[in-house]
Design a protein around this nucleic acid. Structure first.
Lengths: 212, 212
DNA sequence: GTCTATAAATCGATAGAC
DNA sequence: GTCTATCGATTTATAGAC
């Protein structure tokens, strides 16, 4: 028999609730995920959910934070030259890998972005903040790969490339959700090549201007 | 006093119901749009909705068809060289132009694509069919703009470009929904340039291979 | 065909025993 | 802290008068 500590706060149960909420929300979204189902999947009774989390909004707000921490951990390695390729390729595995929290999170996030009836909802507000943090995070990473002359000419160029990259990533998650018949690995390469091409072309134009 | 015809089937009411459903669904999605609200906005009582449409699923399935017809009408002009640019630029005006049915439709469509709990839902099934038709429609249009040598070398190249273009369009609608601070017109140009660059590069590679 | 009233099911949330 | 039972609000859909 394993020892069991009795008089103690049990964050394990909160983890179980968050895990249950995530796995459900990925396929059903915010409004489609009911607190009863969260209770059932987590193995806890209905009332316990409301003991650990004040209400549905706050549960999902904490879920956003919970997932963002995982995302940051997965996207902070010092050596990673093709974030975009990885993100897009990851969109394909929505249903195949249930343990891939980062990808699961992204689908939930898209629903929060689109559902404008959730205006004012605490969880949606938290996601929009996280979305901005993710954006700045990726701007810092991509600017290191852009020639200095390009950034000197247009300091916003890196941000624009991130906007493009995020649109592509979001779009491929939509495609995965719609069940489009796509070779995600190949399209991820094409996407990366398309953005690299824009950077190269801009650098080329600038060097031409200088020599004239 | 205007004349009023009494004993007659009234498709005007069905139009009013479809219009009401669309304007609501754009901001609230499928599940967020209630039949009571549709009734209220359309000006008809609750029961009349169910007289004209069998149930919620069939109402939305017909709404998809209704919007697709508008979309086809707007995207079939013989002279239109930059579909992608227009689509992306249009994503910005989600809230500004309430009469822009084509753009409104796109947002509703994204929700149908993402909400996997609607598996088996008639309206979602209809959208996925329409999504395929839209895809083929755009493939035909883009292949006319791709050099023959490229298509001879890779007959699927046009389809891949449409996949990229659609991902970008979908992604920018997500960005608009999230309220991202973006110059959509400029990003639309960059997107078009990115895809044009891929085509040009492929054509360049092929002509180089031939001369070796 | 139009409209009211309401049924049947489900949701988020709470009360209170243990 | 855990669990059951249930409230009150909301949703889709129907029944039936007009």
């Amino acid at each position: 028999m394993a020892r069991r500590r009795v008089h103690q706060s049990t964050p394990e149960n909160e983890r179980a609730i968050l895990d249950a909420a995530l796995s459900l929300a990925v396929t059903a979204g915010y409004e489609g995920t009911t607190m009863s189902e969260v209770a059932r999947v987590s193995g806890l009774p209905n009332g316990s959910i409301y003991y650990h989390f004040e209400n549905k909004e706050k549960l999902f707000a904490e879920l956003i934070d919970f997932c963002f921490e995982i995302w940051k951990r997965d996207h902070t390695g010092p050596t990673n030259r093709d974030l975009l390729r990885r993100s897009i390729a990851g969109s394909a595995g929505g249903s195949s890998d249930p343990e891939n929290k980062a990808e699961a999170f992204w689908v939930l996030a898209l629903m929060f972005a689109l559902d404008r009836r959730l205006e004012g909802n605490l969880a949606r507000k938290r996601y929009l903040e996280v979305r901005k943090e993710m954006f700045e995070h990726m701007v810092r990473r991509i600017e290191a790969q852009i020639p200095d002359e390009v950034l000197a000419d247009d300091p916003e160029f890196g941000r624009k490339m991130v906007v493009l990259g995020r649109a592509l990533t979001d779009g491929f998650y939509v495609a995965a959700g719609a069940g489009d018949d796509i070779d995600f690995a190949e399209l991820a390469d094409l996407s990366a090549a398309a953005i690299d091409g824009l950077v190269a072309r801009r650098a080329e134009e600038l060097s031409k201007d200088k020599n004239s």
